[in-house]
């Protein structure tokens, strides 16, 4: 079993109004040193696979088919083995 943690964010070229609003709110709370906020989604899933490489392939496939919209979003993931 593998435990995958997937982070999805809007592509850098896409305006993120939520992130901007939060940045603004942080500034008004006195956190002046925050320079950028990007809001994203986080998925955690347990996946059964014979080896790490297969698990990675499966994760990528899932991301492309459903978890992200490649027009606006991009993703990164980390994976660990669970016994």
């Amino acid at each position: 079993m593998y435990n995958a943690k997937i982070n999805v964010t809007l592509k850098k070229s896409v305006l993120d109004p939520q992130g901007q609003t939060i940045l603004h709110a942080l500034e008004s709370l006195g956190f002046k040193d925050v320079k950028k906020v990007r809001v994203g989604k986080f998925f955690e899933l347990l996946i059964e696979a014979c080896d790490r490489k297969t698990a990675e392939e499966k994760i990528k496939e899932m991301c492309h088919q459903l978890l992200i919209n490649p027009v606006i979003e991009e993703y990164t993931f980390e994976m660990g083995e669970v016994k």
Partner: peptide, 17 residues
Amino acid sequence: LLEAGLLPGAMLRNKTL
């Protein structure tokens, strides 16, 4: 239709949130 790829592009949240 956008998600299905029958039309190009994607939707974001309204600028007003």
